[in-house]
Write a protein that binds this DNA or RNA. Structure first.
Lengths: 234, 234
DNA sequence: TCAAAAGTGTTAGTGTTACACCCATGA
DNA sequence: TCATGGGTGTAACACTAACACTTTTGA
């Protein structure tokens, strides 16, 4: 471990900073992309909506801090989390100089998550959510861009959809992410060309009288594709 | 400005961290992509090669710190700098817990730069440079991936080439970045299709007897394209 | 029998790749 | 005159985008 004496000797003259993580938590309800926000019950900006965040402590990496923060809020483990960006404007928070590293998470909203009530969390539609504190709006905007980029290079659905889903669900997801409409014939043939889905025998009978087949991801094929370096363009 | 009393009161119980920036400095000499490295003259790892870095102080953002570090080394201002990633493994440096934000810079190697001799800096070929200290090798690998991504979505040449250049120079640059060979007819027609270059009347006579026309970027057209959201795929 | 969503192919156009010869010039 | 790098076009192919009708079944 680090030797304190040495640390002070070598680095004592440099500034030390509070470093936080903030999580942009995306979900999908089958129709719309959602974002999970918390209502602050402490100052500053008590009562305003914000991203869920927390400070990095000395025994954890930023990835670990983000996992911890996400777990504290949702109880979930092993969630898809990706580091986005470091925000370091000096006065980005009014009460102290806090450097923040943002992370975005993708969670399947249908897993019945036990959201910790202590944080007054709420899912909002990505098209319509309240204005956030500090630079959190900017963080969300950056995260949406990243989500779109990710969604156009790999099938994000793994994380955001339930295990079995219809083609319509998948199309809805992509339409929600990109806020665009696609032709279903073209969409389906593109997806089929990827050859990473398996059609099950089961049908979802809730959406229509005819019923629509359920698919699932073939994780093995998908990983093979990734290893070969494929790119998924919608 | 921040009020110290409040800071201590609100945030005193959280860890504070040394936060550094490390710069991956890319250049292009007309043939190969280069990287600028410094030889450490202090412990730990004195005598080993590393990225140029420095600590973020309390009066500057990480962007500003990266600019300052780059300026200290090269004397250059207003260089293309892009934040890459935050590295926060607890023992990434052996003597202290230091969180580091990496930046990559693109500089035109032909501007006769006054490299500060104090740092024993040296340009290395990106295909063949010494092993670096700590996690700097990983930082470089990540930066190369980012450079490739950037180069495939916008014409990076603005930053890495001199004001006037030949088609061959531009092709060499892309071949160096992607470590691949392209067909010159296809390359040229793709570039021309972008409609962001202006052919000057001048020829570069150093490369052949016939001479080859010099081009320059049409910054106005380029910015218009960017605004319209174009993507440049090589 | 009808309403509502599922499922299914073809065509035109666009972009991509592969490929080989003549040109201008200085030595 | 010849050796060197500069400059140019076309044809096959792959991918993308636009487009409409039939099927199934519960109400």
């Amino acid at each position: 471990m680090h030797k304190l004496i040495e640390m002070v000797k070598d680095y004592g003259s440099y500034s030390r900073h509070l470093v936080a993580v903030d999580c942009i938590i995306f979900g999908f309800d089958g129709e719309n992309v959602k974002i999970l926000l918390v209502k602050r019950d402490f100052e500053p900006q008590k009562g305003h909506w914000s991203l869920m965040g927390g400070f990095i402590n000395s025994a954890e990496t930023s990835d670990q801090a983000a996992s911890r923060v996400l777990n504290t809020l949702t109880g979930l483990e092993n969630i898809y989390l990706e580091q986005l960006k470091c925000y370091s404007e000096i006065e980005r928070e009014p009460t102290a100089r806090i450097i923040s590293v943002s992370y975005y998470a993708l969670i399947n909203i249908e897993k019945n998550i036990q959201i910790n009530e202590r944080y007054n969390a709420q899912w909002f539609d990505l098209q319509d959510f309240p204005s956030l504190i500090f630079d959190h709006n900017e963080m969300v905007a950056d995260a949406v861009l990243r989500l779109r980029r990710r969604a156009s290079t790999r099938p994000i659905g793994f994380e955001l959809l339930p295990e079995k889903f219809t083609m319509k669900d998948l199309q809805n997801l992509y339409e929600a992410i990109f806020n665009e409409q696609y032709d279903k014939r073209n969409f389906i043939s593109k997806i089929n060309a990827l050859d990473i889905l398996v059609k099950t025998e089961e049908k979802d009978m809730t959406s229509s009288k005819k019923g629509s087949y359920l698919y699932r991801f073939d994780e093995e094929k998908y990983n093979k594709k990734i290893a070969e370096g494929f790119m998924f363009k919608i």
